[in-house]
């Protein structure tokens, strides 16, 4: 029997806003499969986003959904999670939303290690506004605001998250669709702040400016560039040049924020043991 996505989708809210060839829908399906695998309760699951194409995702899913201001998803979600730690809190959004305007909230959510899962769809561009360069646009690439090529160096989101203190960091791609739900499942199950970066594509505003003749070419880029961490262990630096590691990149046990605050309450109430 085929998988029933409709069970998790809100009736009447499709079609989605994403362009043909965009990978965000693949990521959304991966998230839905993860929700089903984990049998999360819709009423007890909050999906929080900022602004941008990827941030429209929560509107389609039948849970408690919060579409906030640009870059602020992590801060709003922190309020939700702190006030109701028993809720499952999942964040989603794009690379510009999460690492430029939302960069401060992102690194501090990582630092606190608060038990939420952040799915970042990295298509290396601001798509909704028409293709301006983001902190993840490769140096030299063309965007509507880098007509002579991008002078900026880009972020490595996974390294940023690990450096800031996230206790689970994984990376997948929109091409490797069957891996997405598995990474999200593991991220949600992990106690602490988990980041899942999904390398994505934007054929409309990135591909056309950067000599990708078709969506297939963009998808092939994701296929070619990705190297699973296990496979990378057997490869030499020359072979890894230009490749991007995928899979679970970092996993660590460390104190989770809401649990630590519960101890603060015990200390304040004099009930700490």
């Amino acid at each position: 029997m085929s998988f029933d996505y409709d069970k998790w989708l809100r009736p009447g809210k499709l079609p989605h806003i994403w362009c043909p060839g965009c990978g965000h829908g693949i990521v959304m399906k991966g998230l839905i499969r993860a929700l089903e695998t984990l049998q999360l309760k819709k009423e007890n699951t909050a999906i929080v986003s900022g602004i941008g194409c990827a941030s429209r995702l929560p509107g389609y899913i039948d849970c408690c959904t919060l579409h906030t201001a640009h870059g602020r998803a992590a801060a709003f979600a922190t309020g939700v999670k702190m006030a109701k730690p028993e809720m499952n809190v999942i964040l989603c959004g794009g690379d510009g939303d999460g690492t430029a305007i939302g960069g401060n909230h992102f690194i501090h959510a990582c630092r606190r290690n608060i038990d939420m899962t952040y799915i970042i769809m990295n298509n290396m561009i601001y798509g909704m506004t028409g293709g301006q360069f983001s902190p993840c646009t490769p140096t030299g690439a063309k965007a509507s605001t880098t007509p002579y090529g991008n002078p900026d160096p880009g972020f490595d989101i996974a390294k940023l998250a690990i450096g800031a203190g996230a206790s689970f960091v994984a990376r997948g791609t929109a091409f490797h669709a069957n891996q997405i739900d598995k990474l999200i499942v593991e991220a949600i199950q992990h106690k602490g702040f988990s980041v899942v970066e999904i390398l994505d594509d934007c054929p409309t505003t990135y591909g056309r400016r950067n000599k990708y003749k078709s969506v297939i070419e963009m998808m092939n880029r994701l296929k070619d560039v990705a190297v699973p961490v296990k496979a990378a262990e057997k490869m030499d630096p020359e072979q890894l040049k230009g490749k991007i590691l995928t899979g679970v990149l970092h996993k660590q046990d460390k104190p989770e924020y809401c649990q630590e605050y519960a101890k603060v309450i015990e200390r304040a109430q004099g009930t700490a043991r």
Binding site: V48, L66, A75, V80, N104, H105, H108
Partner: peptide, 22 residues
């Protein structure tokens, strides 16, 4: 109750809205 010192003023305002929604 819960107290959190946020990373900035914007985040503090966001957090109280998120919390109020619960």
């Amino acid at each position: 109750g819960k107290f959190i010192q946020m990373e900035d003023e914007i985040g503090a305002m966001a957090a109280i809205i998120g919390a109020s929604l619960t």
